[in-house]
Design a protein around this nucleic acid. Structure first.
Length: 426
RNA sequence: AGAGGAGUGGCAGAGUGGUCGAAUGCGGUGGUCUUGAAAACCAUUGUACCGCGAGGUACCGGGGGUUCGAAUCCCUCCUCCUCUGCCA
């Protein structure tokens, strides 16, 4: 959520930022928000004054009662009725204004960083780096959805039987390989100074609002009606909401946490012929890193997190490219996002496996996540996160890129985790 | 899940209708004393909003209600504890 005082102080920047986000009516939207805030202040001021008066009268009545002046007290009481009614109306009005203001603010996305290219769709994303060699596959090479059948390591039909489409069953060496990747990612993160956290994978509404999945993306999350809870679409939600309503000390910073969780996405409407196999699932595993840092260091941190992700891809020996997302493709809460895509050779396709973002204080403002600076003032922090990494597409790329005529070679770094160096015929 | 009990400031813990934003203790911060430290003593110490300021308002688990007035009474939800039941 954008910070109201910041908007007022830097109206031009915010207007331009939202226009870049393809919100041509930004100026009117912000004017409305500012107007609402002014209304809020005026109404609250009036209500506060009235309440002060009512408090005073109540005290006087109390005094009169004590002195035994019952009649005077009764007379004073009758005078409060009108004031009370007025305050009730003012209170309702204030609540209405606040709800409307809150609603408007919730609908405003974060403003893009200056380096974010203009654009409407993924077509306009800027490729800033390409690394690694695209493997030459043998003649009979096939996409991963063939390979998993051939080697019997992932079973979509079983998933359909148990649950439905998009919930695969990992079997034998397939399961082992996935577990190896999870452990590899967690160990690496820990070595890089991230603290491992195991969180709930079901969250309440407040958490959804805290990181920005709610109010507008509820269609993307599975909802448990009975308890009014949501299945997490990413570990970002629980990992970051740990710090909701928290005031940190300067020496606690930076916060660096990592968590492995399953993630659940309804992906309503995004299914199609181009999405096959492991490319898009309703349930998938992901290791997520988050950082909470002082505002002035957050872009260094973003770079550092990108370097970290890059190193993982290098170590897995996967060809990848890095994209700077354009304004139109940028997530609602993000100021700057780098997407990492690996090349899955048999599909001849780039697959997004990580998204590393700086949210600046957008989430922190919703979360009320602050720290006490050296002057004792409370200041909003910056939050960042990144996938490190998302499992299924990494798996797809490993399977496709490393396929030989007699099996699939396991990347060196994973062998200590898998305990085998290839996946062969069943 | 059923029965009972409880949720108060960083922590512990008083307060059951009116000078209570809240006693007291611990902790924190500043100071006195000391070569230094400890102890002792003095002062100070919640959050948010409005206001240039003086100051005002709200907050005693969340929401609603009764009352001139609510931490205190009522309703409701949440959480924790004890006992019973169930269970990985």
């Amino acid at each position: 959520m954008l910070h109201l005082a910041d908007i007022t102080a830097n109206l031009d920047i915010y207007t331009a930022g939202l226009i870049k986000r393809n919100l041509p009516q930004a100026s009117e939207l912000l004017a409305k928000v500012i107007k609402l805030d002014e209304d809020r202040k005026a109404t609250q001021h009036k209500l506060d004054n009235n309440l002060a008066e009512a408090n005073l009268m109540a005290k006087q009545i109390g005094g009169l009662m004590k002195e035994g002046k019952k009649e005077e007290a009764e007379r004073a009481k009758s005078k409060t009725a009108e004031l009370k009614q007025e305050n009730k109306a003012l209170g309702d009005k204030l609540a209405g204004i606040q709800a409307e203001l809150q609603g408007k603010l919730y609908q405003l996305p974060n403003i893009p960083h200056t380096s974010v290219p203009a654009g409407n769709s993924e077509e306009d994303n800027e490729e800033i780096k390409r690394e690694g060699e695209i493997p030459l596959l043998h003649e009979k090479a096939v996409p991963h959805w063939e390979l998993i059948r051939q080697y019997d390591i992932i079973d979509f039909d079983l998933g359909v039987k148990i649950t439905g489409a998009g919930f695969p069953v990992y079997k034998g060496r397939g399961a082992r390989l996935q577990r190896a990747l999870i452990n590899f990612f967690l160990d690496r993160a820990e070595a890089a100074g991230y603290k491992e956290m195991q969180t709930p994978i079901v969250v309440n509404e407040a958490s959804g609002y805290g990181t920005g999945q709610l109010p507008d993306k509820e269609g993307q999350m599975y909802h448990i009606d009975e308890e009014d809870l949501y299945l997490i679409p990413t570990a970002e939600v629980p990992l970051t909401n740990i710090y909701r309503d928290v005031i940190l000390n300067e020496e606690d910073l930076p916060i660096k946490n990592v968590g492995y969780t399953p993630c659940f996405r309804r992906e309503a409407g995004s299914w199609g012929a181009h999405v096959r196999g492991l490319n898009r699932l309703h349930q998938f595993d992901k290791v997520e890193i988050i950082q909470i840092v002082k505002p002035e260091t957050s872009y260094n941190t973003l770079q550092q997190m990108c370097n970290y992700v890059e190193q993982l891809l290098n170590d897995l020996n996967l060809p990848y490219r890095i994209l700077r997302l354009c304004a139109g493709d940028l997530g609602f809460t993000s100021a700057l996002t780098f997407d990492f895509e690996v090349f899955s050779a048999a599909q001849n396709k780039w697959l997004e496996v990580s998204s590393v973002s700086n949210f600046e204080n957008f989430q922190a403002n919703r979360l009320k996540l602050r720290y006490k600076n050296e002057n004792g003032q409370k200041q909003l922090l910056h939050t960042l996160n990144g996938s490190a990494l998302a499992l299924p597409r990494i798996l797809a790329a490993i399977l496709e890129n490393n396929q030989k005529e007699n099996g699939i070679a396991i990347p060196e770094v994973l062998r200590p985790y898998t305990g085998f160096d290839r996946i062969g015929e069943r």
